[in-house]
Amino acid sequence: MESSGRVEMPAAFEDALIDQLAQLIADMLDRLMAHNDQIPLLPESLTRFHSRSAPSITVLDYLKRIVKFTNVEKSCLLITLHYIDQICARMPLFTLSSLTCHRFIIASITVSSKGLCDAFCTNSLYAKVGGISVTELNILEREFLSAIDWRLTCTRELLQDYYVNLVRTHSSGQLVIAGSLSPTSTFSDSDLEMDSGQSRPPSPCEAVLRVRHRHRPSVHETSTILVDPATIAQDVARRPTVEQNMAFAALKESRGPAD
């Protein structure tokens, strides 16, 4: 339903069309990649997920291809965001960029489908759909499971929170959750938690990266998308965040080479 330029989305992610979920996720990932592609690639940050060059297919078309040929379930699409949070918390140097996003997605879909669904495809099909070899997918799958510490599941409530925040932070600014009174992408400064403690305005990507978990007011961590600290070991949670590493790198660059 559309009213005054606004587009109404279902209240529950289960009721959304899977193509709608793909568009929401692609919109967020595109902004995240645009942000992370500006970060210099360091040798120590290279992973199995890095391609030599960015794939020519867009993230949205890649997700649509996966949806079409693998019959992936909605929960498996959404939990990809949870996996991003987990891996970025456990591997601070990892960034989801145009070089890593596509391989991350196909590895995530492969792992989540096997872990959450009664029926799933073979690795040969996932590899063909993803545009990589079976051998490469097998390696990525093992790397992925290790990176998330085999934590394959999360609650339905958490997936719903990801969905709501994807809607409310959509780049169009016109999406609303069914029953809400205003565009869900409109939020105040109180909805954001800046781990630096400074009052500078957030960048467009930081608005995506640092949306507060509204239904869990005890959450104070900063994550790539939406943090669930219950899934992160305390010693891991104390490591520098991606944003802190970026700020440190920017500081060193501004000071120039050491004398």
Rank of each mutant, 00 (worst) to 15 (best):
R212P: 02
R214T: 05
R210C: 12
V219T: 06
I225L: 06
L226S: 04
R238V: 14
S218Q: 15
R216D: 06
T222H: 13
R239F: 13
R238Y: 02
P229D: 00
R239E: 15
D228G: 06
R238L: 07
R239K: 06
D235A: 14
I225W: 01
P229S: 03
D235K: 12
H220D: 11
R210W: 07
R210Q: 12
E221Y: 13
V236I: 06
H213V: 08
D235W: 07
A230G: 13
P229T: 03
V211M: 12
A230V: 08
S218D: 13
D228N: 09
I232S: 02
H215G: 12
V236M: 05
D228Y: 03
L209T: 14
T222L: 07
I225T: 02
T224F: 08
T222Y: 11
V219Q: 06
R210L: 10
V208K: 03
A207V: 07
V211I: 14
P217D: 07
R239P: 11
R216Q: 08
R239A: 09
R214L: 01
H215D: 10
D228H: 05
P229E: 01
T231L: 10
V227G: 15
T224G: 07
V219S: 01
A230W: 08
A230R: 05
E206V: 01
S223C: 09
L209G: 15
T231K: 13
R239W: 12
R216L: 07
I225M: 04
D235R: 09
R214I: 00
V227Y: 07
A237G: 03
H215A: 10
H213S: 08
H220L: 13
V236Q: 01
E221R: 13
I232L: 06
A207G: 14
V211Y: 06
P217Q: 04
L209N: 15
A233R: 08
H215M: 10
V227K: 14
T231I: 11
S223V: 04
R216P: 04
E206C: 00
D235E: 08
I232P: 02
R238W: 07
H215E: 15
P217N: 04
E221V: 10
H213F: 08
R214W: 05
R212F: 01
S223H: 05
S218A: 09
H213P: 10
V208Y: 02
V211C: 14
A207K: 14
E221W: 11
H215C: 13
A237I: 06
S218H: 14
R239S: 11
L226H: 03
T222I: 09
E206R: 03
V211S: 07
V219P: 06
V219R: 05
L226P: 04
V208M: 08
A233C: 09
